[in-house]
Design a protein around this nucleic acid. Sequence first.
DNA 1: TTGAAAGCGCTAACAC
DNA 2: GTGTTAGCGCTTTCAA
Lengths: 337, 337
Amino acid sequence: MNADGMRTSPPTLHDVARVAGVSLATASRVLNGSERKVAESFRERVEKAAEELGYTANASAQATARGTSAVIALLVADIADPYFGQIAAGVARGADAQGLIVTVAITERDADREAKILRALRGQRPRGVILAASRAETPDARTTAELAAFAPLGGRTVTFGEGGDRSIRIDNRGGAERLGREMAARGYRRAIAIGADEGVRTSDDRLAGFTAGFGDGGGRIERVYRGTFERESGAASMTTALAEGVDAGTLVFALSDVVAVGAMTAIRDGGRSVGDDIAVCGFDDVPVSRDVTPRLTTVRVPLADLGYEAFRATVDAEWEQPPLELEVVVRESTPGR
Amino acid sequence: MNADGMRTSPPTLHDVARVAGVSLATASRVLNGSERKVAESFRERVEKAAEELGYTANASAQATARGTSAVIALLVADIADPYFGQIAAGVARGADAQGLIVTVAITERDADREAKILRALRGQRPRGVILAASRAETPDARTTAELAAFAPLGGRTVTFGEGGDRSIRIDNRGGAERLGREMAARGYRRAIAIGADEGVRTSDDRLAGFTAGFGDGGGRIERVYRGTFERESGAASMTTALAEGVDAGTLVFALSDVVAVGAMTAIRDGGRSVGDDIAVCGFDDVPVSRDVTPRLTTVRVPLADLGYEAFRATVDAEWEQPPLELEVVVRESTPGR
DNA sequence: TTGAAAGCGCTAACAC
DNA sequence: GTGTTAGCGCTTTCAA
């Protein structure tokens, strides 16, 4: 403190120890929940001093001294996208419960950026990194290299899809296959797929699965429109499809709900209607699929739970992904024929 | 390195210096972009060594040594909520551009939890904290105290609403007033308000503004249903309202778009329809308001931009919030009478 | 320009 | 049970 009693910099453990009249070590022991015993009288004095001074341990200093940080790094393509929002919520739930900090970085679906961020993240020496944004078919080489670089740092990497120390696996193919089968069962025979993201594993699996299931039921995918997993991309693809002609009774398989929502808007803007005219189904079951009209038929993926699992996977010594059955949810956007 | 050339712990600056055959200080100078000049030959050797070893500076150690961290802490009620998702995206955009890390914590709309998180966050010694989740009318006492505690640490606090060193202000009252006026002009005379969050400033301002504007145009709010700014709350309130009876031609003013979306679902589930039967308007213009059918009339709040502004406010020495005009966006959910 | 050395705030042996 | 002290990895005076 200076003359007028105003503190000019935050109180340190040293200050607390001095005020309490104990050693640095003792102060540290009572304030950081170490195992070692401290006499009650000392403990009280330290706590009182810490309280008075408004002391909070400096996390960076603790991390340097301990050699481990308390951060979980999360990488997503776009935090405002409901798909990633759900995942992030799950990760945050787990981390908060353990007193860990979660940092968020945005890749903007750019592999280059992804690798750069991963590299920068290394400096954080995170306890774990969760990559929920990879866009590559086979994991991008740079991403793989950066991911590997976390090993010597002691941090565990968990990826949605392949590439990390541990993976969160979603049976995109199986889910899509069931969806395709169900759609065929409901009488659809012709379909177009939109939002298929070139070189993205998730997209390819979903497309392959749907094609198989729908085919088994006697249906056929007539055209595939490429794009990204973004709303605008879905709208653009649908607009193009409409321009090329879409017969009434056609089913649109959007490779993600977000894409489906964009497509629904485009269908209406094109003067058509969703449902009996053009049916639409998606994948993910993000919250918005229940809010659109007609409500969207889709495949439910418990994203928040998976985010939580991803968190567990970063911190638990033993971990195994719980079995996950993707459920087809039929709603009004596919009334059947 | 040990005998077989495998590194067992991450390379330190010390290692780099040794391999490069220079001093610690020199290595530090070339690797951290300090102002000081280093001879080209030295620089090259250091960079080469760093590259070879795969060196990445330990951010915690840097933070302790420098006395400042590179983190911006963001507090939101729920990261999966589009309102906060948009804000987070804006914050992340700004932070990423400056090489700062953003940490996210979830308050779950709980004042107690908010205070606790703020306290824990202090340990991070963040460069700035952005509070986008406060639920109180007058800022909660504990929150205020925790916010104040950041001052001696050198971090700046920015709040959506009052309470921090700097505030992001949204003219909720003015926007709602214009919305109310516009709705009256479109022929509505009777309205009910839902989702009004008890004790939440934002909510009160919106309600007051709408009441005034709508009243000026000859309209009247007949009932107010309390709740939170969550989708389910909106649905529940609307269900209750329906049970009590809602005449055709009534306008529902939902205090946020998320609430409005919940209400729309409830209206349909109640066997009524949105538009000519029961009109609905919201506030915020989150992405989903353009995806529902009929599309939602609302007041556009540039949330992502405000998130970006909040970021600027935490880091810029000089900062002033750019003037912000909230625009009423009339869509099909309020067809007029 | 370069390097030696004293911190930054905290932890964890190790000794008393 | 308590205190001393040597680090943790990095930055930054201060001499040379």
